[in-house]
Amino acid sequence: MTTTTTSHGRRGRARALPWYVLVPGSLAVVFLALPVAGLLGQAPWGRMWTLLSAPASLEALRLSLATSLLATAVAVALGLPLAWLMAHHHLFNGAWVRALVTLPLVLPPVVGGVALLLAFGRRGLVGQFLYDLLGVQLPFTTAAVVMAEAFVAMPFFVITVEGALRSTDRRYEQAAATLGAGRWTTFRRVTMPMIAPSLVAGTVLCWARALGEFGATLTFAGSFPGVTQTLPLAVYAALDVDRAQAIALSVVLLAVSVVVLVAARGQFVRGLLR
């Protein structure tokens, strides 16, 4: 954004902006800004603390924090090896794996939830065995929340990190090998520092997406206070009952989004473009 303004500034005042660019462009800004303004304008600032420290709010906050962090941990633990394989191994570099990883990004989350239900539900692809053999029932549990969040959020981490791994100069890894470093040492001490900005960005984006997850969670895990009702679900549930509380919780989610936006900057976009 800054580059656009400066380059435009350099071009000088002599050239007038055409109205057919200026008008719709400005309209877009207003369109994007208004809802934020509405949210902030109508936020019950005076009662904010009371509303957020109410037991129901705290419960949703705590559940959201726990599940989103766990989902992020799962996404990193599984996604980092996957990103490495996609960047460096031909078996994982094909269009199929890539499409599969990108799918949750474009899939309507509700459909994701239905799909999870069909895979892990009591009569699902894997779920029936889990139930029959281990007596485990995943849907509508806190574990289901974590799964729904991880399913939807993992691509953000994988794509960001894979892009970074792909663009690192592998000769540094070769240099490390000639210095006696095994693969794990090389990855930990040479590769990781080189992709650190993307690792951070990917993790933050992934966490933000997990925190905001709604559709897949609702479908696969339901909305039971204290068990599966995360912040977004709590906002939705409160909207009809207690508007002020819904707005207060929304402001929390908005604040998180702004922080994430600043932290992640352009890393994810760069990953997508690769």
């Binding site: 070769q174 240099a175 490390a176 090998a177 000639t178 210095l179 040479v190 520092p193």
Partner: peptide
């Protein structure tokens, strides 16, 4: 390579 005991100085040095 990590078990060869051969030192390499690369053209562009590749310092970490």
């Amino acid at each position: 390579p990590e078990r060869r005991r051969i030192g390499v100085v690369f053209q562009d040095f590749l310092l970490f």
